[in-house]
């Protein structure tokens, strides 16, 4: 497993840059991954990110449908927040492994 320094912290990542240990994550890391993707984070982004981290921690498989039903934003809004990768970019920024989900 590769090591990478993001926002001054040494973290474990896979070959696509997804954090492998969500405990190594912090908001500065989120900001740096987001700016690499080309997204500048707002409070709304962090609401989605916190939701994903909670779901991941409780072992629930992630889907965009779940985010759409979370009450934070609808699916269209999710695409607006994370263009071109509503689940993969949000998960990457949230510091959780790449979701193995088809929906």
């Amino acid at each position: 497993m590769a090591q990478k320094t993001i926002a001054g912290t040494n973290v474990e990542v896979d070959n696509e840059g997804y954090l492998q240990n969500p405990d190594q994550w912090n908001r500065e890391i989120a900001g740096e991954i987001a700016s690499e993707i080309g997204i500048s984070l707002t409070d709304k982004h962090f609401e989605v990110i916190d939701f994903l981290r909670e779901q991941y921690t409780s072992g629930v498989p992630l889907t965009i449908r779940k985010v759409g039903k979370s009450g934070i934003t609808d699916i269209k809004g999710l695409y607006g927040l994370f263009p071109g990768g509503p689940l993969k970019y949000s998960s990457k920024i949230a510091g959780i492994p790449k979701p193995a989900s088809c929906v």
Partner: peptide, 18 residues
């Protein structure tokens, strides 16, 4: 159970993404 929606909702998800 796998969070795959009914047809109408699935179509909405697709159009929500463009």
């Amino acid at each position: 159970k796998l969070d795959i929606p009914p047809v109408d909702e699935f179509l909405e998800m697709i159009t929500a993404g463009g």
